[in-house]
């Protein structure tokens, strides 16, 4: 079904870091139900590092797997390192995504970056 890689299916069936962080330092949201996928990322920052990353996602198998992979890749990284994670990296880590899913579902890194920017904005104020 849907020609997903083993890695995608593995993350889809066992997604890492699902949930919300109540007192999150930053929140990033992307997408909307009209286009099919919607992701919310929550981060906790300590000493310039992502101490915790959680997500909630409405969407297809790819969107959920992407969110899970982003959370895994970002956890423990410095903010700079996390900001350098790209959607492309995530697709690669997942063993590739079906062509038609590369754009709409592969927005996890953007959502993460939004959460980091939200944190930086709040901190700046």
């Amino acid at each position: 079904m849907a020609a997903y890689s083993k890695k995608v299916m593995e993350h889809f069936m066992n997604p890492r870091n699902v949930g919300e962080i109540k007192d999150a330092d930053g929140i990033g949201e992307i997408g909307n139900p009209v286009c099919g996928d919607m992701m919310s990322f929550y981060i906790k920052v300590k000493d310039n590092k992502l101490e915790d990353v959680k997500f909630k996602t409405f969407g297809c198998g790819a969107a959920i797997a992407v969110s899970s992979m982003v959370s895994e890749a970002a956890k423990g990284k410095t903010l700079d390192e996390a900001l350098r994670i790209t959607n492309k990296d995530i697709a690669k880590k997942l063993g590739g995504l079906p062509k038609n899913k590369l754009h709409c579902s592969n927005l996890g890194a953007d959502a993460l970056h939004k959460a980091i920017k939200d944190y930086l904005d709040k901190k700046g104020k």
């Binding site: 849907a2 889809f12 069936m13 969407g59 297809c60 198998g61 969107a63 709409c104 579902s105």
Partner: peptide, 29 residues
Amino acid sequence: YIEGESILLMLNMEGIAAASGSSCTSQAL
């Protein structure tokens, strides 16, 4: 609150085949 393709994938893991009108299940998105 949830999306059709995800439901289909999980049903398929259980050996159950169904369909959806979700954009995520259509090639045209």
